[in-house]
Write a protein that binds this DNA or RNA. Sequence first.
DNA 1: CATCATAAATGACGTTTAGTCAAATTTTGA
DNA 2: TCAAAATTTGACTAAACGTCATTTATGATG
Lengths: 243, 243
Amino acid sequence: MATSERKKREYAQRETLIIDTARDLLLKIGYIDLNMERIAELTEYSKGTIYQHFSCKEEILVEMLIQSAQKCGTFLIRGSQFKGTPRERVAAMILGYDLFVRLNPDHFKSKLLLQNESIRGKASPVFQKNLEKAEQENIGLVYGVLREAVESGHVQLQRGVTIEEITFGLWTGTFGAYVLMFSEVNLKALGISDPRKAVWANIHALLDGFGWHPFFQELNWEQTRNRILNEIFSQESHLAGIV
Amino acid sequence: MATSERKKREYAQRETLIIDTARDLLLKIGYIDLNMERIAELTEYSKGTIYQHFSCKEEILVEMLIQSAQKCGTFLIRGSQFKGTPRERVAAMILGYDLFVRLNPDHFKSKLLLQNESIRGKASPVFQKNLEKAEQENIGLVYGVLREAVESGHVQLQRGVTIEEITFGLWTGTFGAYVLMFSEVNLKALGISDPRKAVWANIHALLDGFGWHPFFQELNWEQTRNRILNEIFSQESHLAGIV
DNA sequence: CATCATAAATGACGTTTAGTCAAATTTTGA
DNA sequence: TCAAAATTTGACTAAACGTCATTTATGATG
C-alpha cells in the first residue's frame, strides 16, 4: 500500500502546517483572537479539514505543547549529559531549559493557557493524556540526575525530604519565574531587572540549603556556565544571542 | 445629595453581587463556559446592566482578582506582625498566604487566567493598572520584612544578591507551586503527595542557602508554625480545617 | 481510457455568545 | 403631579463555533 503510506505522510505534513500556522498566529494575535476560521484561511484549507485534525483551538494548543515539551526534553537530556558533578549537570539542565524557552516563546504562552483546567479540558482526553505523559517524562529526567546525586553522596537527604520534593523546588523556582516573565508582570517596577540572574541565584541558594555539594562558593560557576554553553549548547546560545 | 449617595451605594452593591455571582459561576463551570448572559440571569439584571459595570467577563475576573489581592494583603500584613525573628515573620506571611489561598480558591483560578496577556488585555487599562498596583503592594509587604532582616543583620547579602531577588525566590517558589497545585498537574503521579510540605522544605532550604539566621536546624519550626497559626490565624486555620 | 467506489475536502448552515443601542421604564426634584 | 434625567432592558447585528450533506479528487479495475 504505497499510496496509503503517502496519505499518512500528507496527513502528518498538514498537521504540522496547521500547528505551525497556529503557533505564528498565537504569538501574533494572542489566544483570545486565535480562531479556526483564520487558521483555515492561512493554511489554505477549509474549516472542515482543520476540524478533521483538531476539535478546537485548545486542542491545537495542547498538541503544540506536546511537541514543544518533547523538544524541551532533548535540551534537558543534553544538559544532563554534561561532564561534571551532578550539581553541575542539574545547572546544565536548567540552562538548557532556559535556552529552550528563549528559542520557543510559544511554549510558555500555550503552557500558561493550558494550566487552566477549563481551557485544557476542551481538548479530547487522548490529547490531554499525551501532554501529561510528555511532561512527566521531562520531570523524570531531573529525577534521574537527582537520584545519581544522592547515590554518589553529593547530597544527603535530611529530615525526610525526598528527591521528588527537591525537584519540585527546582521546578517551581524556574517554572514560576517563567510564568511571571511571560505574563508581563512588571518585574522592573519590582526591582527585578534581570529575572534570570535571580533564578540562578535562587536555584543555587536552594541547592546550598539542601546541603548539595559542591556548594556555590566552592566552584567557579561563571566558568562552568561558559563551559556548559560552549560544550553542550554552543549553537543554541548563539541563536539566543547570549554568546 | 442624599440620593446620589444612596445611588452610589446601590451601584457598589450591585457590583459586589455581579462579582460574587461570577465567582461562584467560575468555580462551578470554569472560564470557557462563563458568560455574561448567565451572569445577568443569575443576578436578575439584564445584560445591558451588567455591561454598564464590566465590559467583558475578563474584566470581571480582573476586578475579582483586585479584590482578592487586597484581601490577601491583610493576611500578609497579619503574618508580618508575628512576634518573632524576621525569618519567622516571613514564614508567617507564607503561612498566611497559604491560608488565604485555601479559603479563596477563586483567587488562583482567576490569577492563572489573567497571567495570560491576551486574556488580561481584554479588560480596560484602568482595571489592569489597579490590578498591577494591588499586586505590587503585596510584594512591597514582603520587601519590608526582608529589609528589616538585612538591617538587623539576620541576613548578609552576598555576591550582589538583592532583597528583591530573594523575594523573587520566595515568590516563584510559592506562587509556582500554587500554579501547579491549581492546574491539576498530576503531582501525586510525580511523587509529590503533599506539595505544601514540599514548599515549606524548599522555602527554608532557600533561606538557609542565603545564610538567613536562625537556620532551619536551629529552631523548632513545628512549634513556631503552631504559634503562628494560633496567635495570628486562629480563626482561619480552623476554617481551612488545618487545626 | 472510462467507470465506479471510496476517501477527502468543502463551505453553507444552525447555534451560541458578544457587545450595542434605541426604546421603555423608573427616579428625581421642582 | 409631571417633565426631565437617569437607568434598565432586550432585540438586534456580528462573529465564531462546530456539523454534515454535498462536491471533488483519487485510484483500482476492466
